[in-house]
């Protein structure tokens, strides 16, 4: 087991290098660089000045040299500084000689995105397991149909549209919830408890919206998984042995039906650091989605590469954890009976 683990972890290094090289090359295929955005069409900014900027950012060097420079920096865990937001560090804060601290872009965007996504995943899984189980046990009744209807409606509603409607209803018409942003004006004067409360109030709508499509998908997944398991022979056996129905459903069936969800959880780990651009723009939340989207539009290479590297690292970790989770949950995998 340990040997397997070490092998898997060591394998991640060439994978990461490969992924970063491909991302770097693909990024370079997109026409333009930071200078085609900043002041590109301002008659006061001359082409010579832009050429000079290109040289200062090493953008005039061949791609492979640029990649080498990047790799050299990253091997010391230095993610570099952003082009677009005036040399703000990509990953983590730096301190200058006067003790001023400049926070990293990812450092600031990640916690809020993580918080929203973790809350989202928690809500998605807890609700959809209940819904899915309910629908499968009561297959072809009104319960099942309304769950299915809910699932499809949730899937079909465009999130941004529902978001705007909810913002209008809860924020403008009724003033129950704040409309956008993360904090109320003057939140710094509040007590710590009230600050947390204020933040949570701001997060209700974004989390709700981010749950919507996931909720639909996962409950359908649980329902179908449960149906499959419920029709298997060992369930009939269990029932024949006279175990009560609750135990059959929740212990015997659900445990087996949930197994594939482990893979989904594992695969959603990299998704944890990615935010939705649309939701973040509408709710004015400075999260990872907006950070990445803006970086791509601005051709802010250090930020793009930083997020991609962390994202691919987490994907690999996620896969590893999913495999380990499987081994833990399924004795057949653990004992090497099935691969």
């Amino acid at each position: 087991m340990l040997k397997y683990l070490i092998k898997r972890i060591l394998w991640m290094i060439p994978m990461l290098i490969g992924i970063s090289l491909i991302s770097f090359l693909i990024m370079q295929l997109a026409p333009g660089d930071i200078t085609s955005n900043e002041a590109a069409f301002n008659p006061k900014a001359s082409e010579e000045s832009r050429q000079k900027l290109r040289e200062l950012y090493n953008l005039d060097k061949p791609v492979i040299v640029q990649y080498g420079l990047w790799l050299k920096r990253i091997s010391q865990l230095d993610f570099g500084n952003s082009f677009a937001s005036h040399q703000r560090p990509v990953l983590w804060q730096t301190e200058d000689k006067n003790g001023n601290i400049t926070k990293g872009l990812i450092q600031e965007a990640l916690p809020i995105t993580l918080l929203i996504n973790l809350l989202g995943i928690f809500i998605i899984f807890s609700i959809s397991i209940v819904l899915g189980t309910l629908a499968s046990v009561r297959q072809n009744t009104w319960v099942d149909r309304s769950v299915t209807l809910f699932v499809f409606v949730g899937f079909a509603i465009p999130g941004f549209w529902l978001a705007l409607l909810l913002m209008y209803w809860t924020g403008v018409v009724n003033q129950w919830l704040p409309i956008s942003g993360l904090h109320s004006p003057g939140y710094l004067n509040l007590s710590e408890f009230d600050q947390t409360l204020d933040l949570l109030k701001h997060l209700i709508l974004p989390v709700l919206i981010s749950c919507l499509s996931g909720l639909a998908g996962i409950s359908l997944y649980v329902r179908n998984g449960m149906l499959e398991v419920l029709n298997q022979d060992f369930i009939t056996t269990a029932r024949a042995k006279g175990i009560n129905e609750k135990k059959v459903v929740f212990v015997h069936a659900l445990k087996n039906a949930i197994l594939p969800l482990i893979t989904i959880v594992g695969l959603s780990i990299p998704g944890l650091i990615g935010g939705s651009v649309i939701a973040e723009s509408i709710f004015a939340i400075p999260g990872m989605g907006k950070l990445f989207y803006d970086a791509v539009l601005m051709r802010d290479f250090p930020v793009i590469m930083g997020i991609l590297t962390i994202g691919s690292f987490l994907t690999l970790i996620g896969n590893l954890l999913a495999d380990l989770g499987y081994a833990w949950a399924d004795p057949r995998v653990r004992k090497g009976l099935v691969k």
């Binding site: 705007l164 913002m167 209008y168 924020g171 403008v172 409309i179 956008s180 942003g181 973040e280 723009s281 509408i282 709710f283 004015a284 400075p286 907006k290």
Partner: peptide, 12 residues
Amino acid sequence: RIIPDTSSQFLE
């Protein structure tokens, strides 16, 4: 306040 979406700005 930084609000990227103009519809949200309008609601505010």
